[in-house]
């Protein structure tokens, strides 16, 4: 019972906009196939999904590539920085 309750709680929190996301921003340097590679390599996205996200970064200037708890997003953002991508932790 308590598990069900806490799950519902966390879903409510996310729905109310209390979650966190990893946002990758477009930069003028990194090549499109490299950005696709990073999304596949680090997050394990399929080629198709990684390309979709890369195109979103390229065309819209940014894309949310992961979401969840804050610590996890901070790890993701640190990893993106390690790949030379511009990324921030955002509240959603």
């Amino acid at each position: 019972m308590s598990d069900t309750h806490s799950l519902a709680d966390s879903e409510t929190r996310t729905a109310l906009g209390h979650g966190w996301s990893t946002t990758v921003w477009d930069d003028p340097v990194n090549l499109m196939p490299y950005v696709t590679y990073v999304f596949r390599q680090y997050f394990g996205y399929s080629r198709e999904d990684a390309e979709q996200l890369m195109l979103q970064v390229h065309n819209a200037g940014r894309a949310s590539v992961a979401s969840g708890d804050r610590e996890q997003q901070e790890r993701h953002v640190a990893a993106m920085h390690g790949y030379g991508l511009q990324a921030t932790v955002e509240r959603i």
């Binding site: 930069d27 340097v29 901070e74 953002v77 640190a78 920085h81 390690g82 030379g84 511009q86 990324a87 921030t88 932790v89 955002e90």
Partner: peptide
């Protein structure tokens, strides 16, 4: 450009850099 802010808020960005940068730099 190599070590961008990880948060748009300057204080949070500073704190994030403080704990994440050494490891990122060593790996690079």
């Amino acid at each position: 450009r190599l070590y961008p802010d990880g948060y748009s808020d300057p204080e949070e960005a500073k704190e994030f850099k403080r704990f994440s940068l050494p490891q990122i730099a060593e790996s690079r």
